[in-house]
């Protein structure tokens, strides 16, 4: 077609909204900085809490049959500390972080009214969504990785480098074996958060309210967490997007069982691909009135 001549000189749809521009646009936002600050400080706060509480007897110890809890093992070494940090933050903190980056990206622009100027620049709608999705996922992934990596650093500096002790049974996995598996775990947590990310993104592309998009995605996680605790639902729960979120615990046992993680990946990929497709479809036809 006559795309080359139709536009202004030098205009090409494929050059609009480069990733670097979108990256810079989001970088200096206060919520970006605060979220990363929180994620990077949290491991140090946790480590300080463990150090301060070390002298005091912990309630619940000595109750037999319950096995070693993850929190009992957090101070045994850097890897254990990182696993503990990840386990306590994966259910909510990381969800909020991911929902924030992906839910705010389009709705935030709509809220600032800058969206219509981008679209009239023009950045084609599909391309705008794609570039924003890539950058938002990049920020979300950075957030999800920042926490365990900082926890690993913190834990190693404060509690030393040691083999991983498995909660419950107390079995020991050598650090050299556990480290690549920990990378796998972080990758799995990333994939699990993809559902939250894509729902937040869909809501972001649908509504003008960034708060609504973030809250909606976090709300879904809360509702799913409630539903998955209802045993009566049986096998249906396996298809809840959050059901397999803690399946990564099985990857750190001496004989890792990856089947739960595989299912988690399948569910996450399925939900997020459909949600993202719906986001593109809706945004492509939407009347932008913000």
């Amino acid at each position: 077609m006559s795309t080359g001549t139709a536009g202004a000189p030098g205009y090409s749809a494929r050059r609009t909204l480069p990733l670097s521009v979108e990256f810079v646009r989001q970088l200096r936002r206060r919520r970006t900085l605060v979220m990363f600050g929180l994620l990077l400080v949290l491991p140090w706060v946790l480590a300080a809490a463990f150090e301060l509480g070390a002298g005091q007897p912990r309630p619940g110890q000595g109750a037999a049959g319950t096995g070693l809890r993850m929190s009992d093992l957090a101070t045994t070494g850097g890897l254990n500390f990182a696993v503990f940090t990840l386990s306590v933050s994966a259910t909510f903190l990381l969800v909020v972080a991911v929902a924030l980056f992906c839910g705010d990206t389009v709705a935030g622009e709509a809220n600032w009214a800058s969206l219509r100027y981008l679209l009239a620049a023009p950045v084609p709608r599909g391309r705008l969504l794609r570039q924003k999705l890539i950058v938002a996922l990049g920020y979300a992934a950075a957030a999800v990785c920042a926490l365990p990596l900082m926890a690993l650093l913190t834990g190693t500096l404060v509690f030393g480098w040691a083999d991983v002790q498995v909660p419950g049974t107390g079995e020991v996995v050598p650090a050299a074996v556990a480290l690549p598996r920990f990378a796998l775990v972080v990758g799995y947590v990333l994939v699990c958060q993809l559902v939250v990310a894509s729902l937040a993104f869909l809501l972001s592309a649908t509504t003008d309210s960034p708060l609504g998009a973030v809250g909606g995605a976090v709300g879904l996680v809360i509702v799913c967490n409630i539903l998955q605790a209802v045993d009566a639902l049986g096998g249906v729960r396996e298809f809840l997007p959050t059901y397999w979120n803690s399946a990564w615990l099985a990857a750190l046992t001496p004989e890792p069982d990856l089947s739960g993680m595989l299912r988690g990946v399948a569910v996450a990929v399925a939900y997020s691909s459909i949600l993202i497709a719906v986001a593109f479809r809706r945004f492509g036809r939407k009347d932008i009135v913000s």
Binding site: T3, A6, G7, A8, Y11, A13, E109, W112, A113, S114, L115, R116, Y117, L119, A120, A121, P122, V123, P124, R125, G126, R127, G284
Partner: peptide, 17 residues
Amino acid sequence: PGAPVLSRIGCFVEGPG
């Protein structure tokens, strides 16, 4: 939506963004 010819217009509509 997103037609290349839009690059030839400059807009200020409904307030700044």
